[in-house]
Nucleic acid binder design. Structure first.
Lengths: 248, 248
DNA sequence: GCGAAGCCTTGATGCAGATCAACTCGACCG
DNA sequence: CGGTCGAGTTGATCTGCATCAAGGCTTCGC
């Protein structure tokens, strides 16, 4: 096994940035102490594969910081991203022996890992952990289904616009959207990773981004910094039922 | 609201065909009695839309018999299937007010519906129901991710072969695969529904099925009855990592 | 400063699958 | 029995994206 990028920053759960959004969201002080007994941190540098599909898994865990992707590949090398893991997202499946997907660090990543068997035991005794995991899994399933619509039925331009809209929406929530409609963010992925996300080639991704720039739907500063002057315009380009379907 | 096809067959949980696979799989006699208080059956005829995306949902439930599909549509009518519901599959999301997807009966369908609020209350008091739902949701998420690989990266021929392989595998399990490799089953979907499943047009579906028939990968009797003389051959055509990835 | 490696862009060409259209087949019905 | 309607097939043509190929920009090490 390869050595980690550098020693993970050790932390207390109390000062953990994902404390209130991860599987452990509803744990009390005593439960956190229990988790503390079975957890450890690991860091990975950008580009590193954390887990290979088929590997035996002896832990599950949460992304603490950074971004990772789940991918699947066909024998001939075609690859499709099937999950984008952000801080607080859960990795692994309790009860499963072997990893089903590759997990690759997009940026530098810190993970909070729980030894699998103790974690499974704790889940049995602490229902709200399973309840929280259920919520998170249902959210992921919704995201996957949105993504299936994109993969199956959207044009290349709509795919790019949809992806930008997702990033923009996430950022708008964090930054409490400055001014009217103006949204700004950085692309966290390379063109190739975007292509794997969207079921396109990297050339098509590049061309469609250029096209959206030419048509003033977005502005680009460098390769990664995006400004959306009119978010509604972007949503139109994304093709889906306007409003952004905020579901209870 | 439209009238149901005909009166649903009333049943006891004890003689329910999905008793041991649905959300209620681990319920004891007393819990079944509780469920009985909050459940009712409904029947729908083939083609009927059970639920429209955006509708207020006052129940969740299980498919007892028949097949239904979850679909999403873009404004201009392009539609993508995002879930295929077989007997025992769960419909709806506890905690959610409005339906996120259309649910359409593919064949005649009987559903076991639970009034939503009482069911949510019961989930809180009966952790193993939530645990069972978590298992089922994780399985669905895996299926969705397999599907994403198909939608994003497979050719039309591979998509058709993959779909036939899924049906064949399911049937092989039920029928204990007669003889060496020979697998037989009926297509439960129209060409159009298959197209919506696979992100293709119905013409392309038809052509690729004809091509697989021409190349002796399958035999057809009528439009719907399929025989697969060599299942491994079909799996090769499906393109994915042979063996069929049976994961713990 | 220079070469090499990554990441990205842009152009030329080809092809898989969409689109448009005609036709077949079987089921149902008066 | 003929008519209609829905499901499926097959052909001709078009087009969006993949593929192949060349080159630009930035960063890094020497």
């Amino acid at each position: 096994m390869l050595k980690d990028a550098h020693d993970p920053t050790p932390r207390e759960c109390g000062e953990c940035p994902i404390r209130h959004r991860a599987v452990c969201a509803r744990c009390d002080a005593q439960e956190l102490e229990q988790l503390d007994q079975i957890k450890y941190y690991r860091s990975f540098e950008a580009g590193r594969t954390l887990i290979w599909a088929g590997d035996r898994m002896d832990f599950v865990g949460s992304v603490v910081s950074g971004i990772a992707m789940l991918t699947q590949t066909l024998e001939d090398g075609r690859t499709q991203m099937v999950g984008l893991l952000l801080p607080s997202d859960f990795v692994g499946r309790p009860g499963r022996e072997k990893a089903a997907y590759n997990v690759v660090a997009v940026s530098d990543v810190v993970m909070c890992c729980f030894r699998k068997h103790p974690f499974e035991n704790m889940m049995e005794k602490t229902p709200h952990i399973g309840q929280r995991l259920l919520e998170m899994t249902l959210d992921e399933l919704d995201a996957a289904r949105e993504w299936m619509l994109l993969l199956g039925r959207k044009t290349a331009r709509e795919k790019i616009a949809s992806f930008l809209a997702i990033l923009g929406r996430r950022n708008a929530v964090l930054n409490m959207s400055k001014a009217a409609g103006q949204v700004v963010f950085d692309l966290p992925l390379t063109r190739e990773a975007m292509a794997d996300y969207l079921g396109l080639t990297l050339e098509t991704v590049s061309r469609q981004i250029s096209a959206l720039k030419r048509d003033q739907v977005i502005h680009l500063e460098g390769k990664r910094h995006v400004t959306v002057p009119d978010f509604d315009r972007l949503l139109e380009e994304a093709g889906d039922d306007s409003d952004g379907g905020m579901l209870a």
